[in-house]
Design a protein around this nucleic acid. Structure first.
Length: 478
RNA sequence: GCGACCUUCGUCUAUCGGUUAGGACGGCUGCCUUUCACGCAGCAAAGAGGGGUUCGACUCCCCUAGGUCGCGCCA
């Protein structure tokens, strides 16, 4: 196996793992697995002001929840600062970089002047070819220097991108990037290149907001005589109105998706089809995804995030999941769900068995775990059940009489199961010449407090004789 | 302002010069039915605009419009 594929996911820990980052991670993960390679994780924490431990935790937790594992230990970029500085000094020594003593004020003025003249705001290279004497003078005057790359000024830099195609940047449009800050810490631009090189990254798959950075980074690779990895800049995800993804549009941390009751496998399936396709195929197992995934099928246009489709896919996954697995997923997710604590508090062996028995009827009525939890509420609600307005109307509007008539018949049942109760109820409705629904709906209202639920006869069975009859008596009393 | 990239049903997409422009979500009809769902059947819905090239353009080229991203001693 020559040239094994090595990809990396390189988030900066300044916030949670958002949905766009999750998709980037997924693409890197799929690509690495498709070619039997590795995906590395690098935490880009060089911004000491904004990087937080909490964000690092959120990112790692998010990746783990999504099932996107990485090879080896995560690399922390800040820990490699000395290596980055060493490379910068090497470039300085080789004349590939130079010291620049321009002050922050000078740079601001430079930009403002450019803006006023409607020119692109760029560094003008004022320290690029200064005589050594000037540099000495500045240093003895106590000025602090940054190290800037001596980037090519003529010709063009070509990024052969596997998604964007051949993108040409005239070098005159790119200025001399800062490599090392005046306090001696490396910039992102330098750190990324050095780390990707040192980590043996062969394929860089990242958001296309980095496309112009790719040209600047290419200059650094060239200055160091390193080979440039394969680049693939994938389009960003947009909100439903086409604008930048905002909170309202789904730019939430992946933990929010967990709290909304989405299954990681479903979210993965939704995300992989956002900007990538394999013919008409919509649903993939993880292995199928790995087998089918490759860079050429990634589109170049940004995709909009669509909750409706995510819900649909999640519902599909829930229905396809074995009942035991789905129940486990629900129980495991309880701590993250809004009303999860109520169920968790009452969860014992018998409730667990009831949930398991009700699962077939429950899962086809839910698109998320939140809906599944809500649908299961009748199983563990306290008597007397609170009635939804429509359920109350149903009982008050004549439904109660049916319950009164049905109660003794149900009480006399020798076998308590769905088919036995169904026979009783059907016989009764035929007797009085009513449609089954006219009788079944009041029953449902009394048993669940609602007008919608799984089939009433299944409800009777899973609730059990005592609980069912008690709930019916509660409603016939008044 | 400059630069890069993007533009097929409302949304995600297929199409790699010749198709009644296909699928999925959502929407709407209907069937099933004890409710709600599920399932099934069906319907509506698209090549941004304008020029070329070509026997023939969604597909290739140019222009326009719109959108996104980038232009820090942030990442």
């Amino acid at each position: 196996m020559k040239d094994a594929v090595v990809t990396r996911f390189a988030p900066s820990p300044t916030g949670f793992l958002h949905i766009g980052g999750a998709r980037t991670a997924l693409f890197n993960w799929l690509y690495a697995h498709h070619f039997g390679g590795k995906m590395l994780l690098r935490i880009e924490d060089t911004d000491r002001e904004r990087s937080t431990q909490a964000a690092i935790g959120a990112i790692i937790d998010g990746l783990q929840w999504l099932g996107l594992d990485w090879d080896g230990e995560p690399i922390f970029q800040f820990a490699r600062a000395a290596r980055h500085a060493e490379v910068a000094r090497q470039m300085l020594a080789e004349g590939k970089a130079y010291e620049c003593f321009a002050t922050a004020q000078e740079l601001t003025d430079m930009r403002e002047r450019a803006r006023a003249e409607k020119l692109p705001p760029r560094y003008d290279g004022r320290w690029r070819d200064r005589p050594a004497a000037d540099v000495e003078a500045a240093r003895t005057a106590g000025l602090k220097a940054v190290i800037r790359l001596k980037a090519p000024q003529d010709g063009e830099t070509i990024v052969e991108d596997r998604v964007q195609g051949r993108v040409v940047f005239p070098n005159k449009d790119l200025d001399d990037t800062v490599l090392l800050r005046s306090d001696g810490t490396p910039t992102y631009m330098l750190a990324v290149v050095v780390d990707d090189h040192d980590m043996g990254v062969t394929h860089i798959v990242r958001g296309d907001d980095h496309l112009t950075n790719a040209a600047r980074q290419t200059h650094i690779y060239q200055a160091m005589g390193w080979s440039v990895p394969v680049m693939a800049h994938i389009p960003l995800i947009h909100g439903s109105d086409g604008a930048k993804l905002s909170k309202r549009h789904g730019a939430l941390g992946v933990d929010a998706y967990r709290a909304l009751g989405y299954l990681p496998a479903a979210l993965r399936n939704y995300l992989v089809r956002l900007g990538w396709s394999a013919g008409d195929r919509e649903i993939f197992t993880t292995q199928e995804m790995i087998d089918a995934f490759d860079l050429p099928q990634i589109g170049r246009s940004p995709a909009r995030f669509d909750f409706a489709k995510l819900e649909n896919i999640n519902g599909l996954y829930m229905r396809a999941m074995p009942d035991d697995d789905l129940l486990k997923a629900l129980i495991d997710t309880l701590p993250h769900l809004e009303h999860g604590a109520a169920l968790a508090a009452k969860l014992d062996a018998s409730l667990l068995a009831q949930l398991r028995a009700a699962m077939p009827g429950l899962k086809e009525r839910a698109k998320t775990l939140v809906e599944l939890l809500d649908g299961a509420r009748y199983l563990y609600a306290d008597r007397p059940l609170p009635l939804e307005p429509k359920a109350k109307e149903l009982l008050d509007g004549g439904g109660r009489a049916h319950l009164v008539a049905l109660l003794p018949r149900l009480e006399s049942l020798s076998q308590w199961n769905a088919s036995a109760s169904e026979a009783i109820v059907r016989a009764y409705s035929e007797e009085i010449g009513a449609k089954l629904g006219q009788v079944a709906q009041p029953l449902r209202a009394a048993l669940t407090g609602r007008t919608t639920s799984p089939g009433v006869f299944d409800v009777l069975e899973t609730l059990g004789r005592e609980e069912s009859l008690s709930r019916l008596r509660d409603q016939t009393k008044n």
